[in-house]
Nucleic acid binder design. Structure first.
Lengths: 131, 131
DNA sequence: TAAGTGTATTAATTCTCTTAATACACTCCA
DNA sequence: TGGAGTGTATTAAGAGAATTAATACACTTA
């Protein structure tokens, strides 16, 4: 189902969270479908069940999964995680705006910076598709 | 010159940075005046010179000090640290923009959020002055 | 009730951060 | 010119947090 990278310096549970989140967002894992049990997935990846448990707990907290004790973990419907993602991003943006504005940066230069980043991302996207 | 708090869970070098930065920003330490040597300040605080060295290095990186090897550390002029604060803010903004854009948020809604925050800040400012 | 599931607690381990010990290199001035 | 003062670099010791593992518990269902 997923593959771990032991050269990656990040903790295992974080890798698991990231990959499963990706599979859910991309629709590979459908809402209400059953996730592998903590033990099964742990076995498959040759790691401890608690590590999967931790990943599942985080995913549940973020709204990507829901749990029924004794039955298993299931993929949550889109509504439950779309909101969370959006508000996390907005939170991050708001905080940055607040800091910038109260330090005296003005609206125009903030927007200029935004367009800067947009252009950079577009260029990167163009490069990637040219490979 | 400064006083350490051993109940504070933060590292010593961070406390030193914070207190010295404060003394510089508030003008207690004047531009181009000489800072105590790493050994002298270490002795005064009964800690290792390397800890002061680390604090001084961070302060230099942030533009609060400049160093002349063999002579000592000196307080930097205002211009050199005001700029650093700006670029830290831009860095924060850029990161937030990158996340928002790659998650599909569009330019207009980002700007809308910005104006939202601006309005909120203005209202707060108005309230404060009415007190 | 047995097999499969999630959960809780505790401990071992690993790792990073912080601090210290020590040796090196530069500047200045008597 | 050499000694006292300065910053710098390298390495290692120590402490603490984060990660992972071991194990026992509790719930659900067939």
């Amino acid at each position: 189902m997923i593959l771990l990278d032991y050269r990656d310096k990040r903790p295992l549970y974080e890798q698991v969270v990231e990959k499963l989140e990706h599979l859910i967002v991309c629709g590979v894992l459908k809402p209400d479908s059953k996730m592998p049990s903590v033990r099964a997935l742990a076995m498959e990846l040759s790691i401890n069940p608690n590590t999967i448990q931790r990943a599942y707990a985080l995913l549940e907290q973020a709204g990507f999964l829901y749990t029924i004790v004794g039955r298993g973990n299931f993929v949550a419907p889109e509504e439950s995680w779309q909101g969370g993602k959006q508000s996390a991003l907005k939170e991050e943006l708001s905080k940055a705006f607040e800091n910038a504005l109260s330090a005296g940066m003005d609206r125009d230069s903030i927007i200029a910076l935004l367009d800067n980043v947009r252009q950079k991302l577009e260029e990167e996207a163009a490069n990637d598709s040219n490979k």
